[in-house]
Design a protein around this nucleic acid. Sequence first.
DNA 1: CTGAAAGCGCTAACAA
DNA 2: TTGTTAGCGCTTTCAG
Lengths: 330, 330
Amino acid sequence: MPGPTIYDVAEAAGVATSTVSRAFSHPGRVSTRTRERVLAVATELGYRPSPHARALLSGRHHTVAMVVSDITNPHYFELIRGAEMRAKASEYTLVLVNAEESPRIEYDQIQRLVPAVDGFVLAASRLPDENLLQISAQRPVVLMNRELAGLPSVVLDHAQGCRQVVEHLASLGHRRLVYLAGPRNSWMAGTRWTALRSAAEELGVEATRIGPFTPRVSQGGAAADGALHSGATALVAHNDLLAIGVVQRLRQRSVRVPEDVSVVGFDDIFASSLCTPTLTTLGGAHAEVGRSAVEVLLQISNQPSRSEPATQIALPAELVIRDSTGLVRR
Amino acid sequence: MPGPTIYDVAEAAGVATSTVSRAFSHPGRVSTRTRERVLAVATELGYRPSPHARALLSGRHHTVAMVVSDITNPHYFELIRGAEMRAKASEYTLVLVNAEESPRIEYDQIQRLVPAVDGFVLAASRLPDENLLQISAQRPVVLMNRELAGLPSVVLDHAQGCRQVVEHLASLGHRRLVYLAGPRNSWMAGTRWTALRSAAEELGVEATRIGPFTPRVSQGGAAADGALHSGATALVAHNDLLAIGVVQRLRQRSVRVPEDVSVVGFDDIFASSLCTPTLTTLGGAHAEVGRSAVEVLLQISNQPSRSEPATQIALPAELVIRDSTGLVRR
DNA sequence: CTGAAAGCGCTAACAA
DNA sequence: TTGTTAGCGCTTTCAG
């Protein structure tokens, strides 16, 4: 069901195709009368310009691809929402790809889309740095919740955030915390650990790390058991899903939260305010991260010169204190 | 950064462009030697066929658009996940659009995408029937969680499901239930009410309806207050978000769940198993709905004849009984 | 201000 | 088996 083309409109309006084209793309370069006639005929015929023909000619697709490392995690939801809204606002099309935690899938899908999109926003990419740099040589790339020298990125300020977490725990009297690490190839996992450790050192808290764990509720069992073994009084889980799983396992083992141990998560997903106990977690304006990332992408992909230094944005993280953290038991 | 074209490959390999084209599209029609040489040169140059040029010629875009009425609702997450997986499996690109509960946005976005995609899967569309029929005259459409004569659809079997809900409540001794209705233009809202009412009638339960409510947690307050006023002992909320909001409000008003009133939701979102009390809800294989919808779409959009009757798939719903429903107080 | 014509990257006849 | 050629729908010089 191919719609009417520019030829049909031109014929019906009694003008040349180039005039029809101009009436749409450069309304100023056509006399008011012709323009109006052309537009009238076009709407009557239900004409819509073909984005493919346009893209073929211009090389611009008006499309951005968003790749998320694991669509199963409700956290990404917010990122997607923000990205979608920003794209829509500029009449850009958003293509969604789930990498299923597989660098291989992530890479292949990106390569598949290279010739079809204007750029990529990558949420928590699991790809090694070299791959990212290589991709960014093909198309503009904006990283979300990951940083890499030379590439634009939007992140929640993890360093400051982790500091808040440790301060919170220290103020409650905790002296030993354990970080339940995320996936090995997650930049966030590494970064959080570094930030936690340095904040801990500064505040006189002993910090250890166990893992890596796949950040799912189901992995909470293993994480909790490992953590108990460590003797820490505060558990900082890589994300809320893992934290929720940890809390469930602790309850199963009759360890009370927060009386016996405190648990902190990351992301502030919807469920965190509903579970029992409600979860203390490091949140922030995730949708805004998605929004910003697309914004930056549109900006650089509409810039002729690719010379300026990459914009790296850090949005504030916000510690949401709920019921899973409490005073350390004496 | 336009990549190498078929011309570059042809030149480098010393063949005609059509040979390069064939080497990719119809490998059988090229001698093994040339094919291998062409492919070798192509990979060396990093050649990738331009989907736009292909689409321009063939009219097929290898792209499907998924439109969700409200991306804010975690329920859609599963639908999206299933749809994405199915699309990826066939190397189709999935475009995601959030209609933000606005029929206007939904319609405009669809029209914008008509010339760029092979078809649409619409999740809980808020458009009136006429619009849907008109769109399906432009491009193949598959409805998710909505049915309309003549259009293919995939739904969770609400009729059977609602019956299960009422049976469950009746068996607990409830004789009066109230349905907290969803949005006015939600087909599901209408359908659930019809199904609930007829099941209720059969089972000797009195059913009333209040609303419509926007199905968000924040609307739970209004819904709960209206429900209490009705004097029913069982509240059936349009979805889990609303149900969770209702439970929160009831607690605030010192009405115990399930001792004083029972609450049932729909969708079985992740949070439903974590909130307190955990929520009895009508769930099902939502990701499978997404998967199936895309599958049906691919099927019909690859069929030459558009003549056969529209496939309407109903997947089984599953009542998940948790702690928000209990025996009616005597 | 408007028209004619070339070409974006690719594929599908049609020839050779 | 391979090459030549004519477009797909649109934009954009270049003339008029």
